[in-house]
Amino acid sequence: MSNNTNDIDNAVTVSNVYKNYGDVEALRDLSLDFPRGQLTSLLGPSGCGKTTLLKIIAGLLPADSGEITVNSQPVTGPGPDRAFVFQDFALLPWATVMRNVAFGLELRGVNQSEREAIAEKYIGDVGLKGFENSYPHELSGGMRQRVGLARALSVDAQVLLMDEPFSAVDEQTRRKFQEDLLNLVKNENKTFIFVTHSIEEAVYVSDQVAILLPRPSRVSEIIRPEGFRHKDATSIRRDSEYLDIVDRIWASLRTYVE
C-alpha cells in the first residue's frame, strides 16, 4: 500500500527557502517535497507561514532565496502547471458562474466556444448544473467555492494549490467538501497542496501532513496517515488510527496556541 519513500516521484519540491517581510522572518531554510498524485496538507497554527509558502509555490510571492521546482522546472512566477483555489473564492462579482469558471481559460486565450464547453463540464462535475447564468451573490458560500474549484480544475493544471478553501463555508458543507475532495484526489491524477488550520481536516484528506511551526516557519514533522486511506469516506472519522493521529498532532501543537 505505502509508497517506497526512496525513489518517490515528486511533482513539487521546495528546498532551502527563506522569506522575510521587513524584519520579520517568515520562512527559514524550509525544505519539503510533494509526491505526485497525492494530497499534501500544510498544517500549523496561524502565523506559521503556510499561506506564504503556498503563494511562493504559486509564484505569487518571490522567495528571498532557495529553490522551488514544479516537474523539475524552477518556479519564477505563476505558470500553467499550477492552479490556485482561494480562501475568499476570488470570484468576479460581475460575471456569471460560466464566465467565472471559464475565466482562467479566457486569460490563456482559449476561444469562447471551446472554453465554455470545458467550463460546462466542470460546472457539472462540481454539482452546479443549472447555475451557469447565476451571479456569485446569488450563491451560498459553499456554492461559490465550488465555482472557484471548477475554475481551477478547468485549466487542467497538474498541481492544485488550495489556500484554506473550506474555511469560509459552514460546517456541514465543509464535511461534504472534504468527502468530495477525497474522490477528486482518487480520480483526477493531480497533485494537491492544501493549506488548513484544522487538524481533523488535514488528517482526513491528506496522504501526507506537513506540520509547520511558527516564527520562523520550519517543518517540524511529516506524518503519513496511510492505514485508513482504503476505507470509504464515511468510516474514516471513526477509525482508531485517524483519531490517534489527530490526538498526537494536537499534543504537539497545543503549546503554540495562546
Partner: peptide, 22 residues
Amino acid sequence: PASIIEMGQAFLGTKRDIILKI
C-alpha cells in the same frame, strides 16, 4: 480587492488583462 488581482496573476493574466478584465 487584492485577492481577485492575485487570482488574475495566478491564472496567468497579462498586466493588460488584469487592468481591463479585473
